[in-house]
Design a protein around this nucleic acid. Structure first.
Lengths: 192, 192
DNA sequence: AAGGATTAGGGACAAATGTCCTTTTTTCGG
DNA sequence: CCGAAAAAAGGACATTTGTCCCTAATCCTT
């Protein structure tokens, strides 16, 4: 559920020490929105610490959470390649620190720094790999199974995130999520 | 629904003329499986002509179609970066011609050919951009809307593909798809 | 400490979707 | 051109999920 990438941060730190490229560090508070859907930006972010949620809202205001990103994950990078508008809004869930690159710095790095190029390429590939099985699983398993899966993978998060976010991540309503949780309780401890 | 990329093929043709790298051309018949889920391969394919479907099957044998790929789209490329097993199986829908690269050729190209590197990077970014809104749309709209959307975007395909594939793409059962189609008929022509 | 705002929890009913099964239609190899 | 096999269509019923709504609990801000 929370994606991370251990290999990116040490390399960015190295780059910053060398000082050849302009890489800034920024901080955001919880619930602060960093990127808004359908807007144009020219900055790429990489998470130094903290968690963000990436969500798409449809025309009725329903939001669907794409993913939660943690340490070492990028966002805003897709717009470097396609020069289109953002597809998701990105909001800090916890206190958040990021590195940030202008598009031009990012492009220079891609071109001149083979290691960086490779890290970005792998990161993109991983984002694709990750999405496929998730949506497949969600479609073909009942809510209960999806909840169990989350509880197993991220026991802590379930207690930190508002129910609404968990529901939006699984792609169901809060009412349905509650029903599933109730069912699970009763299976665990049938004396209640 | 059918993804394509116009910029890749001309460049591959150029590369083939130069003859520096070993790039093969292969052909497959309809329903032939090129990659099987959870296997290891060391070839990357790029579609010269035709259409494939990429599908994930779960433990109960239910299949969920990730995407249909057409001209200029790659498959098998993710495994270059992650060195893991394939996540989807890839099956020819129509008669299919592909270019193919060994992993080592592909890696050399990425390293030494900036244009190629860029094309791959953009292609990866596009695959991510494309998936996000699709799953969001599917989750938050009724089957009927999803069918209409497909009919509008790919009027021809609906008649070519088996119903099962369309249903698996939308993530519903064939029964539900039929119901939605019936509804739409009646809305179009209420005299029936 | 009070009070409004947000989040959690769930009842009752409606709607959407799945399951199972049967019948018809189409496809395709011999 | 025939017959088996696959694909299409849909009835009947069960289940899941959503919608609407109300109440309780919790969180902030002043």
């Amino acid at each position: 559920m929370i994606r991370t990438n251990q290999r990116f941060i040490p390399y960015i730190e190295e780059l910053r020490k060398k000082g050849t490229y302009r890489i800034e560090v920024n901080a955001f508070g919880p619930k602060q929105t960093i990127l808004e859907q359908d807007h144009r930006y020219s900055t790429v972010y990489l998470i130094k610490s903290g968690i963000v949620k990436c969500a798409i809202s449809d025309e009725n205001g329903k939001e669907f959470i794409q993913e939660f990103l943690g340490e070492g994950m990028e966002f805003g990078e897709l717009e470097v390649f396609s020069e289109k508008l953002t597809i998701c809004s990105v909001t800090a869930v916890t206190y958040l620190e990021t590195y940030s690159f202008s598009h031009s710095t990012y492009n220079q790095l891609l071109k001149k720094d083979e290691v960086f190029n490779n890290l970005v390429m792998k990161a993109l590939a991983d984002k694709i790999r990750y999405k496929a099985p998730r949506h497949s699983y969600q479609h073909s398993h009942p809510i209960e199974d999806n909840v169990l899966r989350l509880q197993k993978l991220f026991p802590d998060l379930i207690t930190v995130l508002p129910k609404k976010d968990i529901a939006n991540y699984i792609g169901v309503t809060v009412r349905s999520l509650n029903r599933a949780l109730k069912q699970l309780e009763q299976k665990e401890d049938p004396t209640n």
